[in-house]
């Protein structure tokens, strides 16, 4: 790998810009692929470039054949994100486990006393109201949103913002009864059944979780299941 290729790759990754590396496995020549441009000595025709850009968009590394040999495209997308609403006791193990699973994690809680808790040292914390925080964070197809507060004043605006976004996973902590009441409130706010079906509630896989750490395991497991298309 040429130094300028590595440098371009690292620069894009540091800026959290989606980027892929195309390598001709026969010649070793390479090209850095961005969403709408590319740089590097490897020759690829328009169709091949479009194919590589499409792999970047689909977040899927792989190999395609060309007249000059197989070309491997490795996608380096920024990490998927998890937004946790509610800096409550479950939030700490959830933030840690999600980080281990490769998520960039942000905690949102307008109650400063909760958000300022020592336990969240090292995590990105926002004390804005969830609707404002999510307007800044802009959940996309690689973002999961989980609400944990049980407080409609905090959870509902977060869920409304998440439902209006492309978030691939939305989960809400609370019993079946709490969840039914929540769905009724959101319905009154104009969300139909199809939209509300996006909310996983009660949150997490049913594994009989009791402790905060076990509940975090069930939530991370469910997010993984959805992300990997096993849902």
């Amino acid at each position: 790998m040429k130094p300028e290729i590595l440098e371009a790759l690292q620069k894009a990754r540091a800026a959290k810009r989606p980027v892929a590396l195309a390598t001709n496995l026969k010649s070793g020549q390479q090209k850095v692929i961005f969403e709408t441009e590319s740089e590097g000595p490897l020759c690829l025709d328009v169709d091949m470039l479009a194919g590589a850009a499409d792999m970047l968009k689909r977040d899927e590394s792989g190999t395609f054949q060309t007249g000059a040999g197989p070309v491997f495209v490795q996608v380096f997308n920024p990490p998927p994100r998890l937004v946790i609403v509610g800096a409550v006791h479950i939030a700490e193990p959830l933030a840690r486990m999600a980080t281990l699973a490769g998520y960039g994690t942000t905690l949102v809680d307008p109650r400063r006393a909760f958000a300022a808790s020592q336990k969240f040292d090292g995590f990105e914390v926002s004390t804005d109201w969830p609707d404002e925080a999510l307007a800044v964070l802009k959940p996309d197809t690689r973002t999961a949103v989980v609400t944990l507060t049980h407080d409609p004043k905090i959870d509902d605006p977060a869920l409304e913002a998440a439902l209006k976004s492309q978030a691939f996973y939305i989960g809400a902590l609370g019993s079946r009864k709490t969840h039914a009441a929540r769905l009724a409130r959101l319905k009154e706010r104009g969300f139909d059944d199809t939209a509300l079906a996006r909310i996983h509630g009660p949150v997490g896989l049913a594994i009989g979780a009791l402790s905060p750490a076990e509940i975090a395991v069930s939530i991370v497991a469910e997010i993984t299941k959805v992300r990997r298309g096993e849902d």
């Binding site: 130094p3 590595l6 790759l9 690292q10 990754r13 380096f76 980080t99 281990l100 699973a101 490769g102």
Partner: peptide, 13 residues
């Protein structure tokens, strides 16, 4: 934290 092999490789280089 999940390790980033490419970052480490670049740092070594």
């Amino acid at each position: 934290m999940s390790e980033d092999v490419l970052d480490q490789a670049a740092a070594w280089r």
